[in-house]
Computed example of a mutant assay.
Amino acid sequence: MFKITPNPPETDAPTDSDPTSPYSTLDPTKLNDAAERALDHYLKPTTPQPPRKPSGMFVVAPQIDNESLLAHACESMASASIMLSDFAALLDTPYRHTLLGIQQVVMLGELAVNRALDNLEPPTRN
């Protein structure tokens, strides 16, 4: 179907006296300032942020050995796996599958931590 569209109104070319033209007064200084601001916005490096200092509220003591850390991580992941499994039993099918998928990821992480514990060389006691 052909729709008739009206022609735009005829206007004269913009001149210096046209108050509606945004380009009637092209001041080179204003254009240069605008270009500098645009380039600075995109290309000027931002001031570096000070290094982030982590909160000391939940800090793991630095003197704890790797074996203890891995054992604790393994126990935490095993607990999370059991909680997810128990909670999944209470839900209907679509949500149960999602929760069991999360539980499987946690269980695989637990297996990886267990393997790291098995491969860890026990420190020699003097």
Score class of each variant (00 low, 15 high):
M1T: 15
F2R: 13
F2K: 11
K3W: 08
K3S: 08
K3N: 13
I4F: 10
I4H: 08
T5L: 12
N7P: 11
E10Y: 08
E10T: 09
T11I: 10
D12V: 08
A13R: 04
A13G: 00
T15H: 02
T15Y: 03
T15C: 12
D16M: 11
T20D: 10
P22G: 02
P22N: 06
Y23D: 11
S24M: 12
T25N: 11
T25M: 05
T25G: 05
K30G: 09
N32C: 06
R37H: 09
A38P: 06
L39R: 13
L39E: 10
D40A: 14
H41Y: 15
K44H: 10
P45C: 01
T46E: 10
P48Y: 01
Q49L: 10
P50T: 05
P51S: 07
K53C: 08
K53I: 13
K53M: 10
P54D: 15
S55I: 13
M57E: 15
M57D: 15
V59C: 09
V60M: 15
A61R: 14
P62Q: 14
P62W: 10
Q63P: 04
Q63R: 13
N66P: 06
E67T: 13
E67Y: 13
E67F: 14
S68I: 04
S68D: 15
L69W: 07
L70G: 06
A71P: 01
C74T: 06
E75W: 13
E75L: 09
S76H: 13
S76L: 11
M77P: 07
M77V: 04
S79V: 15
A80K: 02
S81F: 05
I82E: 04
M83I: 06
L84S: 03
S85W: 04
S85R: 05
D86M: 03
D86K: 09
F87W: 04
F87T: 07
A88D: 05
A88P: 01
A89M: 05
L90W: 07
L91K: 11
L91W: 01
L91G: 02
T93L: 08
T93W: 00
T93I: 11
P94T: 00
Y95S: 07
H97T: 09
H97A: 12
H97P: 04
H97G: 12
T98E: 03
L100R: 00
L100N: 05
G101Y: 01
Q104Y: 05
Q104E: 00
V105C: 06
V105L: 04
V105K: 03
V105D: 08
V105Y: 04
M107D: 14
M107L: 07
G109Q: 00
V113W: 01
N114K: 03
N114W: 02
A116S: 08
A116C: 03
A116K: 04
L117E: 02
L117N: 02
L117S: 01
L120Y: 08
E121V: 03
E121Q: 14
P123N: 10
T124W: 06
